[in-house]
Amino acid sequence: MPTITYIEHDGTAHTVEVAEGFSVMEGAINNTVPGIDADCGGACACATCHVYVDPAWQHLTGTQSEAEASMISFANAVEPNSRLSCQIKVTAELDGLVVRMPAGQH
């Protein structure tokens, strides 16, 4: 199973296994990793699942849809590697993925 490392804003790292087909957001919720709220449960409607994708992995996590890009542009502390984690599907290729969480989602 692919392994994903989620790093909280204070530096605490959580490395967990996430089955292919789940989203990076679901990987955090299902493994009780704190730092991602996901208020809308993955409907790309809330922007409370914001993460920063480690630059080494950006080319494998796909590109933002137009809707995701619009939502993110209004989030707090946006960086070029900002993504909505509910919009990144976990694949075998993403084994080892590292994402960081912002200070808060609200």
Binding site: A45, A47, A67, S73, F74
Partner: peptide, 12 residues
């Protein structure tokens, strides 16, 4: 409707 920027801006 299919305009997330309007939604996010509207909230503000």
């Amino acid at each position: 409707v299919n305009t997330p920027a309007e939604f996010m801006a509207g909230r503000l």
